[in-house]
Write a protein that binds this DNA or RNA. Sequence first.
DNA 1: ATCCCGAGGG
DNA 2: CCCTCTGGAT
Length: 212
Amino acid sequence: MDRVTAAWIYDTLAEHYPDACTPLPFFHSPFQVLILTILSAQTTDQAVDKIRPALFARYPTPADLAAADVHEVEKIIHSTGFYRVKARHIISTAAMLVNRFGGTIPSTMEELLLLPGVGRKTANILLFHALGINAGIAVDTHVKRLAGRLGLTTRIEQDLIEQDLMNLYPQERWGDLTDIMIAHGRRCCTAINPHCGVCPVSNVCPFYQQTR
DNA sequence: ATCCCGAGGG
DNA sequence: CCCTCTGGAT
């Protein structure tokens, strides 16, 4: 894949998903972004958005959440799935913010990975959305599938796919690229029955040429 | 019925 | 590496 085509794909998709890069509004505090990002695993934005007001009305600060009753948290976040695990994680994370990071959220990958419920993917998205840092490209199943179909990479391992994409795009686009590819993977380039007929980049897509 | 803006544990 | 944890969207 050459950079000219890769850049065109980025521009075209970016225009097509103008809201893809700001799933978590700016008025949320870094603390809220952190908690909401942990809760976002394996669920939808709508599900997280639905419980957000109740959650932060009850636990406005890390100290409040650290002292929370786990069953009460479970009840509030129930609709986001994995609620028992997530309830434990966000309470423990809040406690760690208070005890180790002075109530603020850490700004490096290494420190973020110490937080319960924060793995590689969440840390990556978090660095971008809470802190504006383009630390890398979060390669999930959507990005993996989309990058493969578009011919942006021929690799299988997610680390190598990330390297290919990072080589293809300048660092200041990594965060946006993650969001754009996830949005397109979810809304158009789906695993089964992809909507190639309305896909804005199908004209340069090897997968589309091969299946038509 | 299947998959997911995963992470932790064995 | 494989398993589990969960609801919701499609």
